[in-house]
Design a protein around this nucleic acid. Structure first.
Length: 148
DNA sequence: ATTCTGACA
DNA sequence: TGTCAGAA
């Protein structure tokens, strides 16, 4: 639908916006991690800033690094050492990466109806005679097996 | 005004 | 890790 196209472009615009990039002072203020620590973490390769092509030296961090830094600080506050905190964050990022991949590959099709949306989740069994479907109504949803 | 690197009363 | 200097 045309409406969906608009929303997609809007989302792309939002996530590619300059607002998603931060300099060290901003990132520090947002996360409560000192700029001194941020520079040290980068030197240790625990976080990374954008590769800058110009002659500027000021670090620029992408939004994803905000998530990383926040995660590292969380485990640090839990009492873990810096190296362990980083390992924990990497583990979570790894897991979420697989979960995202799983979810993406699980969704075979999204069928829009008048009042609801049905998500096709693929074959329900090895015999491939039934498919698992999820009917969405607002924020509610139900699973259903559909003969194929 | 901010950030960068290097150094340590 | 904080902080300060001197430069960009």
């Amino acid at each position: 639908m045309e409406n969906d196209m608009v929303k997609n472009d809007l989302m792309k615009h939002v996530f590619n916006s300059d607002a998603m990039f931060f300099r060290i002072g901003e990132l520090s203020a947002m996360t409560g991690v000192s700029s001194r620590q941020l520079r040290y973490w980068e030197k240790k390769n625990y976080i990374q800033s954008i590769q800058r092509d110009d002659d500027q030296t000021a670090r620029v961090f992408h939004f994803q690094q905000y998530a990383r830094v926040t995660g590292i600080k969380y485990f640090l506050d839990e009492g873990y050492t810096l190296a362990t905190a980083v390992a924990k964050v990497n583990e979570y990022i790894d897991i979420s990466k697989y979960v995202h991949k799983f979810v993406r590959e699980s969704i075979q099709n999204v069928e829009k109806h008048d009042d609801a949306v049905t998500i096709d989740l693929g074959w329900f069994n090895e015999a491939k005679h039934e498919r698992l479907k999820a009917d969405l109504n607002g924020d509610k949803f139900e699973y259903r097996i559909e003969k194929s």
